[in-house]
Nucleic acid binder design. Structure first.
Lengths: 132, 132
DNA sequence: TCTCGTGTTGACTCTCAACTCAACAATGGC
DNA sequence: GCCATTGTTGAGTTGAGAGTCAACACGAGA
């Protein structure tokens, strides 16, 4: 099994794999432009440099999503690499009573990996039903 | 349907319903004692006062749990009232790859209340299957 | 009336995440 | 050799969350 790439390495590889390759300045500029529409935070190329070298932890979820969009990477994969799950949970839980109830029950049940997998299947079925 | 009590009102009512009723100073002191074992933060009675009057948002999850324990309230109910994720959700996410994957997908799908409800049904079915 | 216990308030502090800024180093074309 | 582009680094900033502290208000009893 190949050693898992770090978040920073992954971003750097994606950036260089673009045609044409982007510089840190270009990428950071584009990500910043995307982010300013949704969020109030910026994204400086020097920050990107540190992230690519894993000298700082991965950026905010908003920044990761903007990166994924600019680089054509998979947004979920990048979020997972950055271990950002609990952050997004908060906002979803605020919006949705159903989400709160569900997660409280799920955690209380102490599910196994297999059972989480079954739930994921249920989710996929719900999603497909919607798209029909 | 009775109007939902705020977090602050709920805490105040629980505090006064104790036998004997606690003062803000007493309760805050006990909560602080409990918290210092787990956490590094304190809990001042003037902070409690503001919380009971809903002049500040509910405290940290650790403080809410300590409050629930001192007051004999239901910990998950209080957490839900405060719009906080269940306390152990964070650790659940760290432990379980399946939980992370499921959660990421669920949040990205932006589910409706009804869809969350369907998921809860799936969860119940899984749980029942286990108990047979 | 004094003061004790209890509750309230405004201003301040502390910490952390998520960045920004100024300066400098390395590399490659001219 | 010069300088333009690209990347790196340490120090500093900013905003939000989670409280703390000093001071004051108010009613009940001695």
């Amino acid at each position: 099994m190949a050693a898992k790439k770090t978040f920073g390495q992954t971003i750097r590889d994606l950036r260089k794999a673009m045609t044409p390759p982007l510089t840190q300045r270009e990428l950071a500029e584009r990500v910043a432009a995307r982010m300013r529409e949704e969020d109030r935070r910026g994204f400086d190329f020097t920050y990107l440099s540190k992230i690519e070298n894993d000298r700082l932890p991965p950026p905010s979820a908003a920044a990761i999503i903007a990166l994924a969009e600019e680089l054509g990477g998979d947004r979920d994969d990048l979020l997972a690499l950055a271990d950002k799950a609990p952050a997004d949970l908060g906002s979803e839980m605020k919006k949705s009573e159903g989400a709160r109830t569900f997660f409280r029950s799920a955690v209380n049940e102490n599910l196994s990996e297999e059972e989480w997998h079954k739930l994921l299947d249920s989710l996929k079925r719900i999603k497909n039903r919607r798209e029909e």
